[in-house]
């Protein structure tokens, strides 16, 4: 049953591992200040108005937030979480939301990474637990 790995396999695995490490490092290095503003002015404002109240980053651990963000489910799975940082969503609310207007052209992945960086940094066990709402 033992299968010998070809040199192409080994090379690919190494490169894949390097790439994943690089991606993880990138994920931790978003613009946390921009993420903070988006979290406060879009996520928190909407949660306060429509979803029963704000959720501070320091109410969850980094593992909790990572799992939540990777699962990409919002409102108990009814919709993808990433929709709320998409350019399309920002375009829809920018008339009434200054953060969506200011960051209208920021690429989706970049903004999502910014918010993620802020949430992980601000988590209960993060580098700088954040209660800011």
């Amino acid at each position: 049953m033992t299968k010998k790995l070809s040199s192409l396999n080994v090379l690919s695995l190494c490169l894949l591992a390097c790439s994943l490490v690089a991606s993880a490092a990138h994920a931790a290095d978003g613009d946390w200040k921009r993420g903070r503003v988006y979290y406060q002015k879009v996520c928190t404002e909407c949660h306060t108005a429509k979803a029963g109240g704000p959720i501070a980053p320091n109410t969850r651990t980094m593992a909790d937030w990572t799992k939540y963000l990777n699962t990409d489910k919002h409102a108990k799975g009814k919709e993808p979480l990433k929709m709320y940082v998409s350019r399309e969503y920002r375009a829809n609310i920018k008339a009434t939301n200054k953060a969506a207007e200011k960051y209208a052209d920021v690429p989706d992945e970049q903004l999502f990474n910014d918010v993620k960086t802020f949430m992980l940094k601000g988590a209960k066990d993060g580098d700088s637990p954040a209660s800011c709402l």
């Binding site: 070809s6 192409l8 396999n9 690919s12 695995l13 490169l15 894949l16 790439s19 991606s23």
Partner: peptide, 15 residues
């Protein structure tokens, strides 16, 4: 071999 090609494709996509 097919696995290697598949992984190379995944890697290329990521890059």
């Amino acid at each position: 071999m097919r696995t290697g090609i598949f992984m190379a494709a995944v890697l290329a996509s990521m890059l």
